[in-house]
């Protein structure tokens, strides 16, 4: 079996635009995944911290929501970035998944894993759960489409009442566990992908990924759990100032 000769490098072989060939390459698509993942991940952290204000009561939380709305540039900037990120992230994930499935059409009868983690092997599934969650979540708490008693602007009410009934809180819990898996592998995988690795700090990568994942997951889980256990309740009187958006 002879190795087929490659065309001789002529110095002119790069006919496609460098950016296009980067996006087509395996590493390029990985990097897209990592950078968009980083954006999403950053958003999730900030979002969780913002949402913590729910424990300060309806006034604080709603005021925070208002404050955000008073900065439309920021709000829409972030929304745009998120949308682009999700789209690119999902595109990259789908494309890489295809490549990887094609790379081994015939599998093994027996397989034993040694180093890979449950999280790393289930990225596709945790990712899909997250995608479904995001769609649901937007319809639920942003547009209110699937919310039983959505009140535009009363974020506190929307969350607390939205997480009280039926399968919604359960789905939130499941999604947050998926988020935990996705983030744990994602965070340090991302560092590896963009080349952040040094023998001296590699251990820190794990610790960092575990810590940040734990913070986000615990924080996020606390909301549905607090509602379900009655820790968070709607205030007796609903005479809270409702600032409608300008």
């Amino acid at each position: 079996m002879s190795a087929t000769a490659l065309p001789a490098p002529t110095g002119k072989e790069q006919t496609t635009h460098p950016a296009a060939s980067f996006l087509a390459s395996s590493i390029g698509r990985k990097v897209v995944m990592a950078l968009t993942g980083l954006v999403l991940f950053g958003y999730v952290v900030v979002h969780m911290l913002g949402n913590l204000q729910i424990y300060l009561g309806p006034a604080a939380l709603n005021a925070y929501a208002v404050k955000l709305r008073e900065m439309p540039a920021l709000l829409w900037g972030v929304r745009g970035l998120l949308l682009v990120s999700v789209v690119l992230h999902v595109w990259a994930a789908a494309s890489l998944t295809r490549t990887n499935m094609d790379a081994r059409a015939v599998g093994y009868r027996r397989r034993r894993n040694r180093e890979s983690s449950y999280a790393s092997r289930t990225m596709r599934w945790s990712g899909v759960i997250l995608l479904l969650f995001i769609v649901y979540h937007l319809l639920h708490l942003t547009f209110g489409t699937v919310h039983p008693s959505f009140v535009d602007g009363d974020v506190y009410h929307n969350v607390v009442s939205g997480l009280q009934v039926g399968v919604a809180p359960l789905f939130y819990v499941v999604a947050m566990l998926a988020l935990g898996l996705h983030m744990f592998h994602g965070v340090w995988s991302l560092m590896q992908t963009v080349g952040l690795s040094h023998p001296r700090y590699d251990r820190l990568r794990y610790a960092f990924a575990a810590f940040i994942t734990a913070v986000v997951v615990i924080g996020n889980l606390s909301f549905p759990l607090a509602v379900m256990t009655g820790l968070l309740k709607e205030p007796a009187s609903r005479k809270v100032a409702i600032h409608t958006a300008p």
Partner: peptide, 17 residues
């Protein structure tokens, strides 16, 4: 890398196997 891709290998998602 471009030859590696052209050969049809999969991509790395950091499984470390």
């Amino acid at each position: 890398v471009s030859q590696m891709d052209a050969e049809g290998f999969g991509t790395c998602t950091n499984h470390f196997e």
